[in-house]
Design a protein around this nucleic acid. Structure first.
Lengths: 214, 214
DNA sequence: TAATACTCTAGAGTAATACTCCAATCAGCA
DNA sequence: TGCTGATTGGAGTATTACTCTAGAGTATTA
């Protein structure tokens, strides 16, 4: 009967309930019922309802980050990398709709102190994971020399915004339909070389563009 | 003493409390106390705590939309328009931090049925307001021919994502510092013409481009 | 001015619900 | 078997969004 651990069953139930009714509207009682777990067990496994949301959020974030990092191995050229990142984002969102909904729509609001530290750590790991790809490309002049924050925003910002509209139900246009456009725009936005079929690493000095080579 | 109406005082107090503690964490009692209003008055002015959030959200959205629409009068050329939109977004966010925080971070989560209809209407108005600018530019080939949703995502998506990081406290980099980069990227992303110094707005008639002239 | 109709204010009361507490049960181990 | 710590169950508590009813303005008509 108990194939999965209590924590897992609660997390599973929580994802479904949060997705259907929203965080606030779901009661702990409903969570317990759906997970087939008693009140006592619930509060033994998690200190609070919010902690469930936080755990769910961090787990989702980790998987999402991993998917993006995996899309750009360190040797990937600029154009291919940008395309891969945009594709990975859109793919992940469309294939994990409930999780993405929770993460991008409800996730931000339920940010207690628990979250913060771990989320910050996750973000650092994420940027470090991407650094192996973008740093060489920035240094050879193929990619826009901007701070990691800004670079990531430029690459997946539009896809992110478009996906958000779809996730929230505001728009019914599936993001993956527009993947080619999203990729083309992202490439134009941050890939610099005027003509770079097979990116030849050009020695270039970074000029006065912030980010003092962290 | 009571210069402002009860509703206004409640909305004001709500913005501050939501910004400091978050939607859930703020109690109606705290709201009443801060607004100097009794419980009875509160529920006379609003049917529920959520309705306060919804009203706040819609008001903020209207002001934000207006700021963006005002940035691009119908004759504005493509490059200038894109720059103006990005600038308007960043300006509005940095100058209305609490409101922006609520709107972009907490706003989505508290979406009941009330919201939905009005928000959809607001979005339609927004797109129509922008149409006067982008339609001519698309037709004369200066702007990427994408759906309004996609176009808007491309233009302010990166700025949006970057601002979100700042609003949530994840990043401490002020978005307005990076305005030039944000603008340059957005322009490269959606402005097509190979060389268009001072775009001549070409007389054109709207044909089959949605929006049946409401 | 007086009566009336209506809106707004007030705060005690109610129902729902996140969370607590402790006794009962189970799993592993001597 | 008996012991120990982890897990479970569910009744109990405190908080809180919301209701209800009565009273205080306020404008309108006679």
């Amino acid at each position: 009967m108990t194939r999965k651990t209590t924590r897992e069953r609660i997390l599973e139930a929580a994802l479904a309930e949060f997705d259907e009714r929203g965080y606030e509207a779901t009661t702990v009682a409903a969570l317990c019922h759906r997970a087939g777990v008693s009140n006592g067990s619930f509060f033994h496994a998690f200190p609070s309802k919010e902690a469930v949301a936080a755990a769910l959020f961090l787990a989702a974030l980790a998987i999402y980050h991993e998917a993006l990092i995996a899309a750009v191995p360190s040797e990937t050229p600029a154009v291919k990398g940008v395309a891969a990142l945009v594709t990975a984002h859109v793919r992940w969102v469309t294939r994990n709709r409930p999780t993405a909904r929770f993460m991008f729509l409800h996730g931000q609001s339920a940010d207690a102190s628990v979250h913060r530290a771990e989320q910050a750590a996750a973000n650092v790991r994420f940027r470090q994971g991407l650094a192996a790809w973008y740093e060489p490309n920035i240094q050879c002049g193929a990619l826009l020399a901007a701070s990691p924050e800004l670079l990531v925003s430029q690459i997946i910002g539009p896809a992110q915004m478009f996906c958000r509209a779809w996730l929230s139900g505001r728009s019914s246009e599936r993001p993956d339909r527009h993947l080619p456009t999203l990729i083309a725009c992202a490439v134009r936005s941050v890939v610099l070389s005027s003509a770079e079929p097979s990116s030849k690493p050009v020695r270039q000095r970074r000029d006065r563009v912030l980010s003092p080579a962290k």
